[in-house]
Each structure stands twice: as C-alpha cells, then as structure tokens.
Simulated assay, not measured.
Amino acid sequence: MTAIPESVDQTASDQTPSEQPAPEKPVRRRTVIGAYFALTKPRVIELLLVTTIPAMFLAQRGIPSPWLVIVTLVGGAMSAGSANALNCVADSDIDAVMDRTKKRPLVRYEVPRRSALIFGIALGVVSFLVLWLGANLLAASLSTAAILFYVFVYTLVLKRRTSQNIVWGGAAGCMPVVVGWAAVTGKVEWPAIVMFGVVFLWTPPHFWSLAMKYKDDYARAGVPMLPVVATTKQVSARILAYSWATVGCTMLLFPVTSWVYIALAGISGVIFLVVAQRLHNNARKGLALKPMTLFHLSNSYLTLVFVAIAVDSALTPVIG
C-alpha cells in the first residue's frame, strides 16, 4: 500500500531547505516523535485505509478475520508511511516553496534528511514482513511494489515532468484495495481490479480540484500540474469526464453486490456528478469557481462508496 499523491500549506518561502538556517535549540523528544509521525502524512493514510477494509469485506463476502484485518491495516499503514516519508525526502526542495508543504519536518529541520531516508526504508521493510507473515507473500509484494512505484515512478519521474503526473502516479494510491483483497484470498480477482479502477479514476478529479486552488504554489515550485498548464475550462472538463468514468466504474460491481450497494453508490454518484457539472458550468461561463467544494465532496463520495461495499458485504448472509 502507498500514498495517494497529495497536495499543497500557506506562506511561501523563496529559500531552499539548504539555504534556511537550522533551528538554534535542539528539538524536544515529543517534537521529534511528532516530526517522524508527520513524515508519514497520516491524513493521507486514513483515506487509504478507508478503502482497504471494504475490499477485504467484499473478498470475504462477509466479515473477515479481525486479526487479518488488523495485520493488513498495520502493514498497509506502515507501507503508506514509508512511501510518504520517502516522498518527503525526494520533494524537500519543492516543499520549501509551496505554502502548505513548507511546514513539513524536513523543511523545518526537525528531522535530518538522512534519518528520514533511513526511517522511510525501514518502515517499508517492516511493512513487507508484517504483511508477509501476517497475511501472505502476494499482499506483501503488491504493497512493496506500490511503494517503489510511488517513489520512483511518480515522485522522481512523473511529478516534475508531465501534467499527467497525477493520472498515472495515482495508480499507487489504488493498491490498498488490491492488497486487501489479496490478503483475504491470496490472489487478485476482477472485483479487486474494478475497485482499483474506481480509485484510479477518482484520483484526477479529487486532486485537480485541489490543485485548481493551489495552482500558484505548483507554478512557483515548477511542478506542471494540469491547472498550471491548462485553462480552467479545460481542467474542469477533464474533471467532469473523470467523474463520469468514476461513477460508471462503480456500477461494474453490481454483479457482486445487492440493492444496498446499488442504492448508496447510485445516490452518492449522482450528487458527485452534479457538483462536478456545476464546477464545469461555472468555468465555461467565467463565474466564480469553488473547486474545494468538489474536493471535500470527493473525499466523502469515495468513503461512502466503500462503506457501501463493506455494509453490503457484511449483510450478504442476511439478504443474499
């Protein structure tokens, strides 16, 4: 498992981490622990884990072993934390000039760069062992592959070179559902691929709506996110297209679910599409945009879809 590529914090600095003065006083132990924890980007991990548990429920067609769920969540959280920490190491230069990321531990010298690198690698190794010993080798291997993809493909290659970075780089954030499925079944089957597709297609509208608000940050850092290199109308059109694709992909799970999932996914999908369409309409008419409305809704939408999967699967013995 690994991170969904994340975004941007306030008040830019023109200095790179190497140019900024180190703190005069040593960091207290509590602050050090908090700094290492912050390297893992816990808020991103929360969203990843929200998709993992429902995938396990659907794979089990009921309630999976609590022990297996705990092991998968712990191993998955460590895997995502590893990818996020390594991302902070690789992106420390651009984090220093972006508003939201300029408060990250490496930028503020709360954690030495070398220590952060070792921490990230160690988390990845331990996560592999936890998933291998607690679940199976396939789940552990998929999770490790996601770390490598996120760090080497998205962070080091795509992010600074193409406006399609988040489209392909976002594939790493889709892996938790596949890892969860593999942890239960020991293999990867088509419903896991569909759930992977849902998260994959959801990532661009989720992230581009946020990037619309913070496009000046990305421009200052030299990162070619789509809102930096395309017009607002073009960005909103792509957001709408991916939103439709996302909702369409959720419908592919109908054969392995019941009316409970169909109703919840359908209603939440309509609301998601209405807000995406409104954003595009405002962009076409030159009206004031509120991209953060779609961003926050996208979080709720993905959560509702996967909660619907879990609830439907848990109720399978009763209604099916």
Rank of each mutant, 00 (worst) to 15 (best):
V130Y: 09
V130Q: 06
L131R: 11
L131F: 15
L131P: 12
W132N: 12
W132H: 15
G134Q: 11
G134R: 13
N136H: 04
N136P: 05
N136C: 06
L137P: 00
L137R: 09
A139G: 06
A139W: 02
A139T: 08
A139M: 09
A140E: 04
A140F: 13
A140I: 10
S141C: 04
L142V: 08
S143D: 07
S143Q: 12
T144H: 03
A145C: 09
I147T: 04
I147D: 04
L148A: 15
L148I: 15
F149K: 07
F149N: 09
F149C: 03
Y150N: 10
Y150H: 13
V151L: 08
V151H: 07
V151G: 00
V151C: 02
V151Q: 00
F152I: 06
F152G: 00
V153C: 00
Y154K: 07
T155N: 05
L156F: 11
L156K: 08
L156I: 08
V157T: 03
L158W: 05
L158T: 01
K159V: 03
R160W: 01
R161L: 01
R161G: 06
T162G: 01
T162W: 01
S163C: 00
Q164S: 07
N165K: 08
N165M: 01
I166D: 00
I166T: 15
V167M: 02
V167T: 11
W168T: 01
W168M: 05
W168E: 01
G169H: 04
G169W: 08
G169N: 04
G170E: 05
A171I: 10
A171W: 00
A172R: 05
A172L: 04
G173W: 02
G173E: 01
C174G: 14
M175L: 13
P176F: 02
P176I: 11
V177K: 02
V177Y: 01
V177I: 03
V178S: 04
V178F: 03
V178W: 05
G180V: 11
G180R: 12
W181F: 11
V184L: 10
V184D: 10
V184Q: 05
G186A: 03
K187R: 14
E189W: 06
E189M: 05
E189L: 08
E189S: 11
W190N: 06
P191G: 10
A192K: 14
I193H: 09
I193L: 15
I193D: 05
V194L: 07
V194A: 07
V194R: 03
M195C: 12
F196M: 11
F196P: 10
F196A: 06
V198R: 08
V198K: 05
V199D: 05
V199W: 03
F200D: 02
F200V: 09
L201Y: 01
L201C: 09
L201P: 05
T203A: 11
P204H: 07
P204M: 09
P204G: 02
P205A: 04
P205I: 08
P205H: 13
P205N: 05
H206Q: 09
H206R: 06
H206C: 06
F207T: 12
F207R: 02
W208A: 07
W208Q: 12
S209I: 06
S209H: 08
L210M: 15
M212Q: 15
M212N: 03
M212C: 12
Y214V: 12
Y214K: 15
Y214M: 14
Y214Q: 14
Y214A: 14
Y214S: 12
K215N: 12
K215W: 14
K215C: 10
K215Q: 14
K215M: 08
D216W: 06
D216Q: 15
D217P: 11
